[in-house]
Design a protein around this nucleic acid. Sequence first.
DNA 1: GTCTATATCTAGATAGAC
DNA 2: GTCTATCTAGATATAGAC
Lengths: 187, 187
Amino acid sequence: MRYSSTHKQETRARLLASCKAIAKQGGFEATGIDTLMSSIGLTGGAFYTHFPSKQALFEELIREELESSSRMLAGDERSDPDHVAKRLRGYLSSFHAANPESGCVLPTLGPEIARSSPAVRKAAEKSLKQTHESWNERLDDSDGAWALIAQCVGALVLARSVESEKTRKEILAACRRHIGRTHTLGL
Amino acid sequence: MRYSSTHKQETRARLLASCKAIAKQGGFEATGIDTLMSSIGLTGGAFYTHFPSKQALFEELIREELESSSRMLAGDERSDPDHVAKRLRGYLSSFHAANPESGCVLPTLGPEIARSSPAVRKAAEKSLKQTHESWNERLDDSDGAWALIAQCVGALVLARSVESEKTRKEILAACRRHIGRTHTLGL
DNA sequence: GTCTATATCTAGATAGAC
DNA sequence: GTCTATCTAGATATAGAC
């Protein structure tokens, strides 16, 4: 064969990484396969050696993004006492609002997940429950943990929906301050 | 002329109402003009007597929906002392989660607004500021008002992203309870 | 104002050469 | 594994009949 034994999986990985960023930036449905493939220097026809359909790519992409977002929100350094506070500062930041391509999947593709297949929503549910459980361990407040996740996701949706940088920063800062007041996190 | 003097504006109104529901249900970009027009019993060609382009329809649709959502969240019965609590119960309900077509535009088209034109985001900003101001009047808590809006929008995004009805209800109930604890609303 | 027909473009997906 | 070429279907938008 003319390609190395790892070539295919490497190409698939590059494709997924690129598609994640593009989909979070401009929406998944809105971007065509030719565009996705040319973003990694290939043509549209080569897509189908890696995925049987665009829908299959969506499912894999969302699955991986949800796990990544779960890690982003929940973190894994269980030793650091105020790492939740750090995660929140990063999440509710202007940088995150301005760079959806490298951020959490929920504020940008949440509605597409909601309209997708049961399998995708099943994966979303699993990741969200993990995040909830992780925060509940620290907050000892199940309701508060769900409220916190909702507030974070909603704040990003709102921040990106307004035009002025001033209002965007105000929304994010208000949520950071409010969380500091209503949760015992040392934010 | 063969049509009444009010016929055109009535058709336009019917078209807008139908498109709002369809777009909130399945996404705006995902639905074609033929489908939108046939939903009110007309064919695609007639669309362009009412709007110069699909984008123009989107802008008008979002503008009206944002004002409607602002009313839905903020309300206008300034006399009722706990009408904020009522609005929140309706917003954070299973019915709302199950019926995006008749619900708030932000949890379903928020990302499309975020990716749209500055004019659309300008309108979104205006409506959001109105809602914020309305709630701030009652809560006397500017940060809390933004946090509340974010939490409501985020809760709907999450609730619709999970598969099981059980988890969906848990997320919504947790947010209702948490708001009851952290805001003085009598929820 | 709405229809049918159509122009033009782009989409997802497949076939066969290399 | 990737390419080019192509099929089919759907999209937005326009033209002209009624």
